[in-house]
Amino acid sequence: MLARSARGLYWVGRYLERAQHGCRLLAEQLDALEDRPVGEIELNWRRVYTALGRAPLGGDLAFDLADDAFMLADAYTLVGDLALEAGNPDAIRNCLASARENARQVRNTLDRELWGCLNLAFLGIRDVGIEDIWKDRPGDFVRTAEDAVRTFWGVADSAMYRDESWHFLRLGRYVERTQLLAALIDAQLAVFPSHAHFAESDWLSLLRVCGANGAYGRLFSLQVRPPLVINFLVTDPHLPRSVRFGLAMIIDALDVVSLGEPLALEAGRRAGRTGARIDFDWPNLDLRDQSATRAMLHGIRESCRLLHDDIRAAYFAYEIEDTPGG
């Protein structure tokens, strides 16, 4: 397939994943606004902003722990920032707009329904303001946006021919997901001190963001233990929002598209090595000293970054050795 088309699809996958990640973080946060104590909400915001690598308002989050009204006013601004802010490239609306714009440019490689799904989702939120979404239940906004992404993948999964279009689309999706997950888990460790007196709810909410609370309960117990949660979200090969699962999907997609090209093989090897490190070297979380765990997480994030560069060099922007012309 045309290199530019592959790149477009890869970015559709990435932006949709980023949009969905934003939706899930916000949905969790909006839920917390209903009944959680202010202190917990503040920590949750820190986790969100640390995970996204974005500076919160005015440089720092400082809540007046005694005043709910201020807390809500802050939430109003923060939700606007993460959902709609034009200057925030990772805001949900911007991610959906970028996904749609990339899709528009490579529309001929996508099924009609897939384009329609993105176009409708974008047109539906193009002109809304934070006042609009706040007046009703703000959760509706993120649910609708996430539904659009889910519908897209549902249709893609059930209808797309499994050629390169499909593989580059999911390559983008899982490179993004793996990177975002590693960043989120790292932020969790940075923000919530996991000494003996951790709050269960902080870790439950992390499981919920990753859609892992149900499976965790069935597999382990209803009692939440940070080392188990972290292990689960990083190493479990059956959890769609785990780092290991994401890497497995990347390895699988690369395996199909590589065709023995040296550069492409390099990307596959990198993904494979990262997966193997998780399988064999993942340390159990030490509640007093998290440094080994966090170093591994940093390594995974760095691998994802390099993986992106590999894919780009192998498929989208490769060098042609002879000079063009005549």
Partner: peptide
Amino acid sequence: LRCEGRIGRI
């Protein structure tokens, strides 16, 4: 993912 976005407490 990083960005120097503009936000202020309104």
